[in-house]
Design a protein around this nucleic acid. Structure first.
Length: 470
RNA sequence: GGCGCCAUAGCCAAGUGGUAAGGCAGAGGUCUGCAACACCUCCAUCCCCAGUUCAAAUCUGGGUGGUGCCUCCA
């Protein structure tokens, strides 16, 4: 399994620190609002990577945090005249709902900053003790010059950064790159008691602390959006390695951005969308499928037109599954023919292709091509069979690959506008009409059902019905 | 100013040395009582120029056009 490591800028063979186990940390959202469509990408892709590793037999300890103390949350809380926790609780709940919609497996742990304050203070204290941090007034800064590896992840040179510094230099800092570990609270802001003064933690320290607490000093994979490379992840490395004295994360993974109509999403451009808004019009599974249709490190563009194309592609897969599932349930033969046994063996090539793609830095676009190849194979061979075991075998194999990508294929709880009995009665009547060559009546029944969102399909194994929208 | 990334058919998108996966859309055909689903066939020589090589979309240099980070940000 090869994995692109931002730290070394190369694809490397994946070897976990502890054989068979993967310790993975993914930076989670700041919960001041619904998560936006851009957040959906790391949710989906790192979930998919996790699932593939589990498919490969690794035991994955997957941690994703929630940042629940932040200026934006405080502002919103003040605007609504409620406690900060009311805001963060609300949007954590919503984020979890979105994650579920995207078919993201629940992380092993989802820590929140406000519940890790003791450990945060402890790590800052360690950094001060070790001479990697200093206090000015009530503010604690990390001393970037004291950590010789600073810049190794982002490829930035600390002195170039100084020269190009765009923001006003905080004169309290020893170096412009020094960043805040702890800052005093302002009037009306939440605060925690700390040895160097009441206040709250800076943004970067939380991830170092939570990774350490839930996974250990050295972890296998640290992931997040590409914009986090600098300064956030660079700073995390500095904090963790300075405090713990061992390498922080072995592999660093970063996902590319989602653009909207070829532009970066931003509030000022007016093209900012929450996932919830999008999901109101585009099913979650289409959004997930769309995200997986490109390589995770490349930027992808989001538009109505592309969603429609993704919808159709996904429908093709789902249609196939439904079709072979119908055969698996209705086929009468209980034995596989010799030809079919050979076909099952032949179909293993799709799994091999799939694995090869995923082994190559989680190339989901390529893996999807294997699934489409498999779908075509199934459409040709399974629809021609009357063998239950054959149909079942192929179905199970496709489903297993789809599960790795998180493509939801299980018969969802479809709510028809009629009961199954009613539908089946209509079908029976139509079959009679057909037998009597009364095609006018047969078509009438089909049209009636169609207008109620139910599509009939005549197959050799019987009449199948499904939802119009699939 | 510093550090990156990208450029493949109408659209999306794999492929990083041996003569272009897959999906969407489109055209024609088969199946069907008619449909639907499905299947078959057709649909690119990989931004430009130069170079390396028996061989390049794939490597090197130059150019053009995009774009990201350096500031909260997935």
């Amino acid at each position: 399994m090869k994995i692109y490591n931002t730290l070394t800028k190369k694809k490397e063979e994946f070897e976990p620190i502890e054989p068979g186990k993967v310790k993975m940390y993914v930076c989670g959202p700041t919960v001041y609002d619904y998560i936006h469509i851009g957040n959906a990408r790391p949710y989906v892709i790192f979930d998919c990577i996790r699932k593939y590793m589990e498919y490969r037999g690794f035991e994955v300890n997957y941690v994703q945090n929630f940042t629940d103390v932040d200026d934006k949350i405080i502002k919103k809380a003040n605007d609504e005249h409620v406690d900060m926790q009311v805001i963060s609780d609300r949007y954590i709940k919503e984020a979890l709902q979105d994650a579920e919609g995207l078919n993201v497996k629940k992380p092993s742990s989802t820590p929140r900053v406000t519940e890790e304050m003791d450990e945060i203070i402890e790590m800052i204290d360690t950094l001060i003790q070790k001479g990697h941090a200093y206090v000015v007034g009530g503010t604690v800064y990390f001393d970037t010059k004291s950590f010789k590896g600073y810049g190794k992840l982002s490829g930035k040179n600390i002195d170039d950064l100084e020269a190009g510094a765009r923001i006003e230099v905080d004169t309290d800092k020893k170096h412009p790159c020094d960043f805040v570990l702890w800052k005093p609270n302002k009037e009306g802001e939440p605060k925690w008691v700390a040895p160097w003064g009441d206040g709250r933690p800076g943004w970067h320290i939380e991830c170092s602390v939570m990774a350490k607490k839930y996974l250990g000093d050295s972890i296998d994979i640290h992931a997040g959006g590409e914009d986090l490379v600098f300064p956030h992840h660079e700073n995390e490395i500095a904090q963790s390695e300075a405090a713990n004295g061992v390498p922080f994360s072995k592999y660093w993974l970063h996902n590319g951005f989602i653009n909207i109509d070829n532009e970066k999403m931003s509030k000022s451009k007016g093209n900012f969308f929450t996932l919830r808004e999008i999901a109101a019009e585009i099913p979650y599974d289409v959004i997930r499928f769309f995200i997986l249709s490109g390589h995770y490190r490349s930027p992808i563009n989001f538009s109505r037109e592309l969603m429609t194309a993704a919808q159709h592609g996904l429908d093709r897969i789902k249609e196939c599954i439904k079709s072979i599932d119908f055969i698996a349930q209705n086929a009468t033969a209980t034995e596989m023919s010799a030809d079919e046994t050979a076909l099952v063996a032949e179909s293993n090539k799709f799994r091999r292709d799939f694995e090869e793609s995923m082994d190559n830095d989680f190339n989901t676009a390529d893996a999807l091509a294997s699934i489409f190849d498999f779908v075509k194979f199934a459409n040709i061979h399974v629809t021609a069979t009357a063998s239950k075991p054959f149909a079942t075998e192929i179905k199970d194999n496709i489903l297993q690959l789809c599960d790795v990508l998180g493509i939801q294929t299980t018969a969802e709880n479809v709510q028809f506008s009629m009961t199954d009995e009613e539908i089946e009665a209509c079908i029976a009547e139509r079959q009679q009409a057909k037998a009597a060559k009364d095609f006018k009546r047969a078509d009438e029944i089909r049209d009636q059902l169609n207008s109620r969102g139910i599509v009939l399909q005549d197959t050799p194994s019987g009449v199948r019905y499904s939802h119009k929208s699939l």
